[in-house]
Amino acid sequence: MGQMPFVMQLLDTLAALLLLLSFAMLAQRRIATLVELFALQGGVLCAATLLLAWRTGDDNLVLSAALTLGVKVLALPWLLRRMIRRLDVYWDTDPLLHIPGTMLVGVLIVVFSFGLAQPISALASTATRSAIGIAVAVILLAFLTMITRRKAMSQVIGFLSMENGLFFGAMSATYGMPMIVELGVALDVLVAMLVLGVFFFQIREQFDSLDLERLESHQGGR
């Protein structure tokens, strides 16, 4: 690889941090901590975007960094924390697959993602192409988080984290999506969060719990 500029090394470090945070989310059972991890992931993403903006001189990236900060670091975690307080769900119950097993599957997923990303990285012309594998891994790990959790709350956080991965992937492959798309996605995520919040309250009202197993016993007549 030769000598990389310091900025790029810093960017790679941030990418690694992102992956580490994904693993931390995969292992975390406390929902309150999960939210903080998610906020932290948003912060790292924001820093990476800013760094890339400084490196490429692209003003749009500054805007998306600001958007990330506003939506993913401040607004969404605040909404989530408030919901946790109101709904009184601090802990998830035992995950479907025990945590060491989940971590092993996660490692396999990371290997698969890097394998996948290799041809894309070869094609991409951006400076950040080495980070594409990490972006794919973050998406798939977030998916895994959603699969292994029982509470609707943690699934939503997994979903939001997946969006982080997508954002990072777009950034590293093509220096970010067009501004209009990013704005739209940010708005979508916010609205989805609000709608899901309403759903949480409804679900708890109906079943006295946010545990999805209660929902599963209520599927249509079979």
Partner: peptide, 20 residues
Amino acid sequence: RGRISTYLLYALATLCLLLA
């Protein structure tokens, strides 16, 4: 199966398969 986790697993498996 009526289990959200199972459906998510289907989605993940399909995604991985398509990507591969």
